[in-house]
Design a protein around this nucleic acid. Structure first.
Lengths: 454, 454
DNA sequence: TTGTAAGCGTTATCAG
DNA sequence: CTGATAACGCTTACAA
């Protein structure tokens, strides 16, 4: 701050200087840098926010022309004042962070804390109007933390997914979030990166912070829910289950059926040498899509030699590399089924880089739709499923557990998948060529189609 | 449960019956359905979890052959036992939710709670080994809630975005989450749906629950941060700013520069009738991309008639509709610049539905890359930017505010955008046709290219 | 209907 | 180095 009597500065600059000074002081107080003034007590946390206020009044009247802050009975404390600086008049008004307590409201309204608490809980009290007025005057907000401590309830749930940046999980998150907002629950979002270790840490870190968890486990065989369950936290499994945890609610899709649909769809075009790019077999969708596909092939009497089954990790790069391996086989594949969206992108990239034409040379079906699938050339055929709904249902199940409603036995919801046949599959004997379909329709969601031609 | 002496049932069935019964009892206790037994006291919340345990021991020994639970000094309580049921032997073991306190540990270790607290805080105490042993024996975890109440710190931040299912925000969320995990902070995820009202509710609901907020504001002009700031919660703006809130840290990208790049890129192909599909002008990226584009056109001396500027809302459908409007103009556009990823998808869908060839008839540049952009035919040219980094930097800035580190003035970070020219732009005079490029490269990220041919 | 007082599980103070 | 004690802000018997 420039000394009084120095060069003229604008009112705004002066104001900024005052604000800045007070900020620095606040910061010093928080950092316990000051300890010689009776007005400034050594406090941390919420105390620092509240109790340093009177001293700020004192500082204000010492360092500037601000009027001191009102007594303890005043409403949300503020410092305001006017002054002259470098020949210019200016005024300022500062409102300080203030977290009032139920006790402040009680004092202000002249009742007991009990009465305020009752009012807050929606009970009828005689002095409702006065209490409400005090609450508003003080801009009072009840402390969630204190309530949690007392009630043992956090009104928070955890959503633990392998990867939010996967469009499927992002969509699920949106579904979960929308329901939890209605229920006035907050959502902790955590990524496990498909990693069992990280998952364990994440889940243990949630203990005591959440009333329930929606979990997409990294691996079927690695049950990290023990600590959480011991702590009495309800859990709903989403999209993937945990071996031996049949007592947990779950919301799955019929991955096996979806994979069968994919296999049958490809076989209906005459394909027999179909490459499968599977997810990890120790995840539910990985295993089920693998099994569903393999069984559909077998029951159709088609031989599936081991080299045709490539195991990926649900990430893009693994789909890319698996495709290269499939393309390198002595006898080329004529079709590929990829078990999730990210790997499918990898498949398409690999095919593009190797200059393999789809569907002329290789037909492709992917599990999980993509926003751009329809716009690829050819449009990508996929196994679709209701992703938002999975999130919504999981949240509903969790709510029931949290409220101890609904049946006592575990609920296992399995949603249907459906095939969205676009243009990435073609007849084996008569590979088609592409053309652009003259289609002036307005429909955003195309109905299943299998056309693709030039 | 079937009466003793009834038809023989399997041990498993018997066990399940016991478990089931105890569950029901627990539930009744929680719901206060029982109040006539001295063993079962009327409690709710954490008390219900803890204090009903002795009574469960009693119930266990009454209703089954289970051995009663140990006294208050025992470790995490469990009920276990064996028995005969319908002629078959069976045994069971149940572990009940148990949340021990610092006091339980103190008692177990024969020290005071203060000592345990000190041990937990990492201070040196004489009985460290014993206390640690007790902690492990009791499977003790300190209550986050109590700590928060005492310290005034929640170790939680809020991440408020318009739409998690937008790949850009999903990616940002991943960046934020990764840093916050390192910092051992939890992340509340909230969607505002680009809606000011909802945003206000979300932000107010965060007061008292978080130590800081990363916010992507819905509208530049609607500042909903007042309450939060009054409560002393630091805020970092991400990707969008708020008018008059220059004192808040922010992490933006050079949207204006990106839009200029897009305009220049399109003009370099000879385009002059370029349609702009802008975002809302009262959002930072909407406004800056609009202005950057318009200015680039003007300074190149190209006239931009009003009908060429269509305002969307960053959602897919608005891009679709805006494109239809552009196509319906008396003089057709020869190129389109779309201001965000979702609208770009809408653009492409509309062009596809109207059978307009890209880039032969219309060239396209979108703001924000898409995972599949490279695989479209033609590959989509976009303005790219470091999305994960935006999230990471925002989280770092927020951390500094929360720790009162770093400079006192607001930090405004602006990251560069860069053009990823693929194949969706072509010369105006000599529209090219497509072909598939023979490219066996392994590169996952293609370098900027402008080729597209048949 | 209202208020008093005892907790919820921690941590900070202060005296041993 | 340790422990009794008093908060933190709220809810809830219990008593008036």
């Amino acid at each position: 701050m420039s000394p009084v009597g120095g060069p003229p500065i604008s009112p705004i600059a002066a104001l900024m200087a005052v604000v800045q000074t007070i900020r620095v002081i606040l910061r010093c107080v928080r950092n316990k840098d000051i300890d010689n003034d009776r007005h400034v007590s050594l406090l941390s946390g919420p105390e620092a926010r509240r109790k340093t206020l009177p001293s700020l009044g004192a500082l204000g009247s010492k360092n500037s022309t601000g009027s001191p802050i009102g007594g303890p009975e005043s409403s949300a404390p503020r410092a305001e004042g006017r002054g002259t600086w470098g020949g210019n008049d200016f005024s300022y008004r500062l409102q300080f962070p203030f977290v009032g307590t139920i006790g402040d409201v009680a004092k202000h309204a002249g009742v007991s804390t009990t009465t305020v608490s009752r009012h807050l809980a929606g009970q009828k009290i005689r002095s409702a109007a006065a209490v409400q007025a005090s609450i508003e005057a003080l801009d009072f907000r009840a402390s969630h933390t204190a309530r949690s401590l007392k009630s043992g309830v956090t009104r928070t749930i955890g959503l633990v997914v392998p990867d939010v940046s996967n469009p499927f999980f992002a969509t699920v998150a949106k579904g979960v979030e929308s329901v939890s907002r209605q229920l006035e629950l907050n959502v902790f979002l955590s990524n496990t990166d498909e990693n069992v270790e990280r998952e364990r840490n994440v889940l243990e870190g949630l203990i005591g912070r959440v009333d329930g968890v929606i979990l997409v486990p990294a691996r079927e065989g690695s049950n990290n829910t023990g600590e959480l369950r011991r702590a009495g936290v309800p859990i709903v499994l989403l999209d993937r289950i945990l071996t031996g945890a049949d007592d947990l609610d779950s919301v799955l899709v019929d991955s096996r059926g979806g994979a069968e649909q994919a296999a049958k769809h490809l076989m209906s075009f005459g394909h027999e040498r179909i490459g499968l790019i599977s997810g990890p077999l120790d995840t539910t969708p990985g295993r089920e899509r693998h099994d569903g596909f393999v069984e559909a092939m077998q029951s159709a009497g088609v031989d599936l030699e081991p080299a045709l089954v490539q195991i990926g990790d649900f990430r893009l790069k693994s789909g890319y590399q698996a495709t290269l391996r499939l393309l390198g086989l002595p006898t080329a594949v004529t079709a590929i089924f990829s078990a999730n969206n990210l790997m499918t992108i990898g498949v398409l990239r690999a095919l593009r880089h190797m200059a393999v034409r789809v569907p002329d040379e290789v037909s492709v079906v992917g599990f999980d739709d993509l926003e751009l699938a329809e716009l690829l050339s050819p449009p990508l055929s996929v196994i679709s499923r209701p992703a938002v709904e999975q999130g919504v249902l999981a949240m509903r199940l969790l709510r029931n557990r949290m409220e101890d409603e609904g049946p006592d036995q575990a609920q296992h919801i399995v949603l249907d998948t459906f095939i969205t046949a676009r243009g990435s599959c073609a007849n084996l004997e008569h590979p088609r060529r592409l053309h652009r379909k003259k289609d002036k329709g307005f429909a955003e969601a195309s109905p299943p189609r299998t056309d693709s031609n030039e």
